[in-house]
Nucleic acid binder design. Structure first.
Length: 421
RNA sequence: GGGGGAAUGUCCCGAGCGGCAAAGGGGGCGGACUGUAAAUCCGCUGGCUAUGCCUUCGUAGGUUCGAGUCCUACUUCCCCCA
């Protein structure tokens, strides 16, 4: 990033201050555009899974800031491009998904954006796009004549995403190679249809985005811009959004708000300030105060991070509830009935459930074998009492108030809830 | 078209004289220490109705008391020659 550059627009000033910017094709030009109040920008999202995960949060937040600073955000679902597969940053070819799967994913992903953006017909209202709309209608010959002639294979071969695969002598199929052409074409198409002049994305998208900027110039669109956010890792270098339990999904039905809250609560010390700037809308002044906290006090900042981040995604109420559940569970050591629950028929309780099975049912362990191992390691507890006998049976006495609290380690708790069938 | 390699525990990388549930990492999980942190140390890291049984080493056959290991065919990937 250029040191001499002083942003005059709220949009760029905010993004830079908060650490969202990795690269930009033209800071001055984009700044000017943003100041004019006519900035329309889009970010593309893959539809490879039924929910986006934390990795997509940064680009979503970019769109949200754009809207808050007077721009018009266009989230784009890659209904068309997902059928092709992006090679960027991947070592191996991605499996092709069926069209039905993509459509289903698309429907389920859409809902996330409504949490962060306000949609409508107004000037700064967000509009949801889907590139299937124009990509699937493309005619191959026309595309080659009109667009294909502007792509230099020499240049594409020199792009990092391609070069890497070639250097490692890994397969790069023709359709993956075409992905970037389609993405470039998207940019131009969206510029024409919706007046977008900026495409944002993660730093791995830089090459693809800049190619779109170029294509726009050749096809005579107004000046286009590229802006990328840094690839996020935790301070210890781990990629964000992956845990053993799986990805940190944004969809509440795939990851409960309480678990989402916990994810942020467990951030490393060194990440807290950075995350507050990126994943909450708290004013920088307030974040600075939290940054001053040292030692164990930083836990307060983590709670605020967790609650604010959760509130953005799942709503204030759910966030407060998660915070309260955590407070009761961790700080009071009390049984909180709002922990994640798994239902068990009363008849099974009366008959007695083996501990091993119970933990598998609760989803805390993957198999009875793992349950056995965890018992040996001292990692399982029922109602806060360590499980020592793998043959133990949970019966009615363990279900005080109809629930039994099962814990794995110190942080993961699930309630088995007795229900009459 | 010809010749030569390679595919290992469904997270990844990677050893593996014919007796192998298979070395070693990384990652992950649990324990100790802490602050629901990091670092460090320790343990675990196929499944099950479990002193036993079942399923794993690209796919399918074969040799053998016994195959990840040997043979054959096939699939995929890589290298060299054309």
């Amino acid at each position: 990033m250029s040191d001499a550059f002083r942003p005059k627009s709220d949009f760029l000033a905010t993004l830079i201050e908060r650490g969202f910017v990795h690269q930009c094709s033209d800071f001055e030009g984009l700044d000017e555009k943003a100041r004019s109040g006519e900035l329309v920008a889009y970010v593309g999202f893959d539809c490879t899974a039924p929910s986006l995960h934390i990795g997509s949060l940064l680009p979503i937040t970019l769109l949200a800031w754009l809207q808050r600073t007077g721009g018009k955000p266009l989230p784009l679902l890659g209904g068309g491009t997902t059928r092709v597969g992006d090679p960027s940053g991947k070592d191996e070819s991605r499996k092709l998904l069926s069209i039905e799967t993509i459509e289903a994913n698309k429907a389920s992903i859409k809902t996330v954006f409504e949490k962060f953006l306000s949609f409508g017909d107004g000037k700064t209202d967000a509009v949801m796009l889907d590139n299937a709309e124009w990509l699937t209608k493309l005619n191959y010959i026309d595309f080659l004549r009109d667009v294909g002639r502007h792509f230099s294979v020499n240049r594409m071969l020199s792009m990092d995403s391609v070069k890497l695969r070639l250097e490692r002598e890994q397969e790069l199929s023709f359709i993956e190679f075409n992905y970037m052409c389609l993405q470039s074409y998207d940019f131009v198409e969206i510029a024409k249809r919706y007046g977008a002049s900026l495409q944002m994305g993660g730093s791995d998208q830089w090459g693809n985005i800049v190619m779109g900027v170029d294509l726009g110039r050749r096809l005579g669109t107004p000046q286009l811009y590229a802006l990328t956010s840094p690839l996020l890792t935790t301070s210890s270098g781990a990629k964000m959004g992956k845990t053993a339990a799986g990805a940190i999904w944004l969809d509440g039905s795939m990851l409960a708000p309480y678990e989402y809250w916990q994810y942020w609560r467990n951030s490393e010390d060194a990440d807290v300030v950075r995350f507050l700037k990126l994943f909450t809308f708290l004013p920088l002044g307030e974040i600075a105060k939290l940054a001053a906290l040292g030692g164990a006090e930083i836990n307060e900042a983590k709670k605020i991070l967790a609650t604010e981040a959760t509130a953005l995604l799942h709503g204030r109420e759910a966030a407060e509830r998660a915070a309260e559940t955590a407070r009761r569970t961790f700080e009071e050591g009390a049984l909180s009935l709002t922990l994640p629950k798994v239902a068990v028929p009363a008849s099974e309780v009366v008959a007695g459930i083996g501990v091993l099975t119970a933990f598998v049912k609760a989803g805390l362990v993957a198999s009875t074998g793992e349950a056995r191992r965890q018992i040996k390691a001292g990692g399982l507890r029922v109602n806060d009492a360590a499980v020592t006998d793998e043959k133990a049976i949970l019966g009615e006495t363990d279900f005080a108030e109809g629930v039994a609290k099962l814990s794995l380690g110190k942080k993961k708790h699930v309630l088995l809830e007795q229900v009459s069938e």
